[in-house]
Measured scan of single mutants.
Amino acid sequence: DYEVGESVTVMDGPFATLPATISEVNAEQQKLKVLVSIFGRETPVELTFGQVSKI
């Protein structure tokens, strides 16, 4: 299970290999909103559970 505030690594898509912090969890739809730090700015990205891995 994923929790808000948890650190994960993006495994898929254009942000693969980047660390991210979970900002929202939708367990019903198996989706997460995460904040990816790009060029010093936090960018919100919506991903599925399968696109991230716990650190």
Rank of each mutant, 00 (worst) to 15 (best):
D1L: 14
D1P: 13
D1V: 13
D1G: 14
Y2K: 01
Y2H: 04
Y2T: 01
Y2R: 02
Y2N: 02
Y2L: 06
Y2A: 02
E3G: 08
E3R: 13
E3Q: 14
E3W: 14
E3T: 13
V4Q: 05
V4P: 08
G5R: 03
G5C: 06
G5P: 01
G5M: 03
G5F: 04
G5Y: 04
G5T: 02
G5Q: 03
E6M: 14
E6T: 07
E6Q: 12
E6K: 05
E6V: 05
E6L: 06
E6D: 13
E6A: 08
E6Y: 05
S7C: 13
S7W: 15
S7T: 15
V8I: 10
V8F: 01
V8T: 02
V8G: 00
V8E: 00
T9M: 15
T9E: 07
T9K: 09
T9G: 03
V10Q: 01
V10K: 00
V10P: 02
V10G: 00
V10F: 03
V10M: 05
V10A: 03
M11I: 15
M11R: 09
M11S: 08
M11H: 06
M11E: 07
M11T: 12
M11Q: 07
D12G: 07
D12W: 12
D12T: 12
D12P: 01
D12V: 13
D12C: 13
D12N: 09
D12Q: 10
G13Q: 01
G13I: 02
G13C: 04
G13H: 04
P14N: 05
P14Q: 08
P14K: 08
P14R: 07
P14M: 08
F15I: 02
F15E: 02
F15C: 07
F15A: 03
F15L: 06
A16Y: 05
A16N: 07
A16H: 06
A16E: 07
A16I: 09
A16V: 08
A16M: 08
A16W: 05
T17Q: 11
T17E: 08
T17N: 14
T17P: 07
T17M: 11
T17L: 09
T17Y: 13
L18D: 02
L18T: 04
L18A: 06
L18V: 05
L18M: 12
L18Q: 08
L18R: 09
P19F: 11
P19I: 15
P19M: 14
P19N: 12
P19V: 15
P19H: 13
P19A: 11
P19W: 09
P19K: 13
A20C: 07
A20H: 02
A20T: 02
A20F: 03
A20I: 02
A20W: 01
A20L: 03
A20P: 00
T21A: 05
T21H: 06
T21D: 03
T21S: 06
T21E: 07
T21N: 05
T21Q: 08
I22G: 00
I22K: 00
I22C: 03
I22N: 00
I22F: 00
I22H: 00
I22V: 12
S23M: 15
S23R: 10
S23C: 14
S23T: 15
S23K: 12
S23I: 15
E24K: 05
E24A: 10
E24M: 09
E24Q: 09
E24I: 06
E24N: 06
V25M: 05
V25S: 03
V25G: 00
V25K: 03
V25Y: 04
V25F: 04
V25Q: 02
N26T: 05
N26M: 11
N26R: 08
N26I: 10
N26Y: 13
A27K: 14
A27I: 13
A27Q: 13
A27F: 15
A27Y: 15
A27R: 14
A27V: 14
A27G: 09
A27E: 11
A27L: 13
A27N: 13
E28V: 11
E28S: 11
E28K: 11
E28Y: 08
E28M: 11
E28W: 07
Q29M: 11
Q29C: 08
Q30I: 03
Q30D: 06
Q30V: 04
Q30G: 14
Q30W: 05
K31T: 14
K31G: 05
K31E: 05
K31M: 12
K31H: 06
L32E: 01
L32F: 03
L32S: 00
L32T: 01
L32R: 00
L32A: 02
L32G: 00
L32N: 01
L32W: 00
K33H: 07
K33G: 05
K33L: 12
K33E: 05
K33W: 10
K33S: 07
K33N: 06
V34Y: 00
V34I: 06
V34F: 00
V34G: 03
V34K: 00
V34M: 03
V34S: 01
L35V: 13
L35A: 05
L35Y: 08
L35D: 04
L35M: 11
L35S: 06
L35W: 07
L35K: 07
V36H: 00
V36T: 03
V36F: 03
V36W: 00
V36P: 02
S37Y: 09
S37K: 14
S37A: 09
S37R: 13
S37Q: 12
S37M: 11
S37H: 13
S37P: 07
S37N: 13
S37D: 12
S37G: 08
I38T: 05
I38G: 08
I38L: 09
I38N: 08
I38Q: 11
I38R: 07
I38C: 10
I38M: 08
F39Q: 14
F39W: 10
F39L: 13
F39S: 13
F39N: 15
F39H: 14
F39D: 15
G40D: 08
G40T: 04
G40C: 08
G40L: 04
R41G: 12
R41M: 14
R41L: 14
R41V: 15
R41F: 13
R41S: 13
E42P: 10
E42F: 09
E42Y: 10
E42V: 12
E42W: 11
E42H: 08
T43H: 12
T43V: 15
T43W: 15
T43D: 07
T43G: 05
T43R: 05
T43N: 07
T43P: 02
P44Q: 15
P44D: 11
P44T: 15
P44S: 15
P44L: 15
P44W: 14
P44K: 14
V45I: 14
V45N: 02
V45D: 03
V45Q: 05
V45T: 07
V45P: 00
E46S: 06
E46Q: 06
E46M: 07
E46Y: 10
E46H: 06
L47N: 00
L47A: 03
L47E: 01
L47S: 01
L47G: 00
L47M: 06
L47Y: 05
L47P: 01
T48H: 11
T48N: 12
T48A: 11
T48V: 07
T48M: 11
T48C: 10
T48R: 08
T48F: 12
T48W: 11
T48I: 07
F49E: 02
F49L: 04
F49K: 02
F49M: 07
G50M: 12
G50Y: 08
G50C: 08
G50S: 14
Q51C: 04
Q51L: 04
Q51W: 04
Q51V: 04
Q51H: 04
Q51E: 07
Q51Y: 03
Q51I: 03
V52R: 00
V52S: 01
V52C: 04
S53D: 07
S53N: 09
S53L: 08
S53K: 12
K54E: 03
K54A: 07
K54I: 05
K54C: 04
K54F: 05
K54D: 03
K54Q: 06
I55N: 11
I55Q: 10
I55G: 10
I55E: 09
I55T: 11
I55R: 12
